[in-house]
Amino acid sequence: MNLAVAPKPTISFTPREISDWRGTPSLAIARSLQLSGPTATIAVPAIKRSVPVVRHLARLWLDSQGISDDGARFAVQLAVSELVTNAVEHTSSMVITSRLHKDRTNVWVEVQDQGGTPSVPRLKPPDTALDNGRGLALVAEVVCGWGFSLAPADNNCTVWAAIPYSDNQEEETPAA
């Protein structure tokens, strides 16, 4: 599923910027995330070190959107982490692009690679004897829907996940 939203500026990183990342984005990056409105687009090199950077920026975007629903925040960060990891590990992409978008009821996570593999994402039973291979199954458990689309011209694959969120968190009041 490709979101039908107007393109927004992309925040792009070089491999050196990812390697030098120390957990705090520059003021320019933070402002870009906040000014992007309901959509943020982040392009990173297809290296493992990019995963925590994208996860951190997703958290900042959730903050800027006022999404405080803990379950949704967890699911968004898990989906971003696992989908970017899969794109890094299972494609020959040089760049991975993540998009975060919200509508009235869902946060949409999209991760697009540059193709380079004949396989498509598929949900398979996790093998607990292995150290990997459970990412998509974990994502499927915490989202209300997921899927993928292939661009026939260049074999780019976009994997998406929909995560419901609540604007109104019920605050727990201690019993008297």
Rank of each mutant, 00 (worst) to 15 (best):
L27V: 11
D63C: 00
V109M: 08
T105N: 08
G116W: 14
I29W: 06
V53W: 09
N155K: 02
S36E: 13
S119D: 15
H101R: 05
F13T: 09
L33H: 03
K102M: 12
L60R: 15
V109F: 02
S166T: 06
L35M: 09
D103W: 10
D167M: 07
A75F: 10
F148W: 15
N2F: 04
I11Q: 07
A28R: 08
D131P: 03
K8F: 00
A153H: 10
M94C: 05
W108F: 13
P164L: 07
N155Y: 05
C157D: 06
Y165T: 04
A6P: 03
P152T: 07
I96P: 06
E17T: 06
E141W: 06
V51W: 01
K102Y: 12
A162L: 15
Q112A: 04
W146E: 15
L35H: 05
L138D: 09
C157L: 12
T128P: 05
M94Y: 08
Q112I: 14
L62Q: 05
V88M: 13
E171T: 12
R99H: 07
N155E: 14
T128S: 04
V51Y: 00
V80Y: 13
G135N: 01
T128C: 04
A75M: 05
D70H: 08
G71F: 12
L57S: 01
G133Y: 00
D154M: 02
A79V: 13
R31M: 09
N86E: 13
E17R: 04
P125S: 10
L60N: 13
